[in-house]
Design a protein around this nucleic acid. Structure first.
Lengths: 230, 230
DNA sequence: GAGTGGTCTAGACCACCAA
DNA sequence: TGGTGGTCTAGACCACTCC
């Protein structure tokens, strides 16, 4: 065997051994120390390769117990979630948006529950239609915690809420859910489609340091596909 | 300032400086060497923290050019894609499946194109209904390259194709697309829903070393949600 | 050419946890 | 309690690329 050089080569070699069943699913593989000796490199280099594979879901590592080949190989894919404007422009289309509605109101109970706030706390309710080359792209329905807004509130007609938040309240934690739903009347009219058409929906809720920021629901135009690679 | 200890503390401190606009989007931050000196740690530790943030999409790093705060903060989420059986069992439900159809046939041109093979090459065409607690969960329509099957072909009535592939053809590369569609007649009948209902669809194509393995289309029962966190 | 990040080394200490 | 992975160090060389 030619000795692998570099942590990527070691990763490739480890993958090869898994593929050819040299190391079977569930089996413990040699320790970092042993592999470093076999490959003729420092343990840190082996560590780098194995850590990468563990993050990818191929290996499971536990102190003392050692490193095992994952029994139920969970494929882990990464999704890029860009600003809507960037997503449209990445398709080579021109982005524009129109604020359809902007009020302060009480959120419906499910939204309040998702954000973890009292249902009696009023939030900004903003409905935005995003356009790609002038054609409807998606409807953004957002409930926004007014506490994150500066005193002279930003002009959401100039910069979309989506973009303002990303630029001004960075790195929040949150969760996302994707689903397929039948378009409601409001969304259908905004998107120019028939009510009841199958639409791709993204529900996102974000916090920063435990403070709820926003709950947003993106209703994409029919035909939208969310892509990624393994 | 209390000196951060450990690469995670350094990552947190860097994030804090970005959040408070100490380092603005697009701006170049100090070099690893400088930060290591400031934090009183080795450069490798700073490197670990910055590399992690770059992978998360918060920073952009280029040799010689230095490290910049990302201008268009792309959120990067990771999706876990388990075996269907594991996904059902993770909900605390019992998994079962029925093979509805299993033939050798020519794939429709779009499928052949996606796999990158000649349209005249026959593939296995397998339609499987997956059940959760006895109720329809999803329909799996798969086109499978027969070249990956061993000579006594596995018994897909005992182990689903999905699971057999994951256990026997590990770590392929591929791509995934998610979309919302109106249920077709066949899928609707199998899932026990009305044709035209909005269904969540996963399209996955996988290769190994450039050899096409399979193209699969998962049609989920209405109400299915794909979850992840940021 | 010079300065950046990318990587590797040889060694060390520590947290954890199965035996 | 010993062996494992997790991390850190201080130093080094290299690849890349902007100037």
């Amino acid at each position: 065997m030619t000795a692998p050089v570099g942590w990527e080569a070691i990763r490739a070699e480890v993958l090869r051994r898994i593929r050819v069943r040299d190391w079977a699913p569930g089996a413990v593989i040699p320790s970092e120390t042993d592999l470093a000796q076999e490959f003729g490199c420092a343990r840190a280099t082996v560590n780098r390769a194995l850590r990468d594979l563990a993050q990818a879901g191929v290996l499971e590592r536990r102190r003392r117990a050692g490193t095992r080949v994952a029994l139920h190989p969970v494929r882990r894919a990464t999704l890029d979630i860009p600003v809507i404007r960037a997503e449209v422009e990445a398709r080579g289309q021109a982005h524009a948006f129109r604020v359809l509605k902007h009020v302060t109101a009480l959120p419906p109970p499910p939204v309040a529950a998702r954000l973890g706030i009292a249902p009696a706390a009023p939030l900004r309710h903003i409905l935005t239609l995003h356009l790609a080359d002038g054609r409807p792209f998606l409807v953004e329905e957002r409930w926004l915690n007014p506490a994150v807004l500066p005193d002279p509130a930003p002009d959401f007609a100039a910069m979309s809420v989506n973009e303002w938040l990303v630029m001004n309240v960075p790195y929040t934690s949150g969760d996302i859910a994707f689903s397929a739903e039948a378009a409601g009347a409001v969304e259908a009219r905004a998107l120019g489609i028939d009510a009841g058409a199958a639409v791709f929906v993204t529900d996102r809720t974000t916090w920063t340091d435990g403070m709820p920021i926003t709950a947003v629901r993106l209703v994409h135009v029919p035909g939208y596909r969310l892509h990624t690679s393994l």
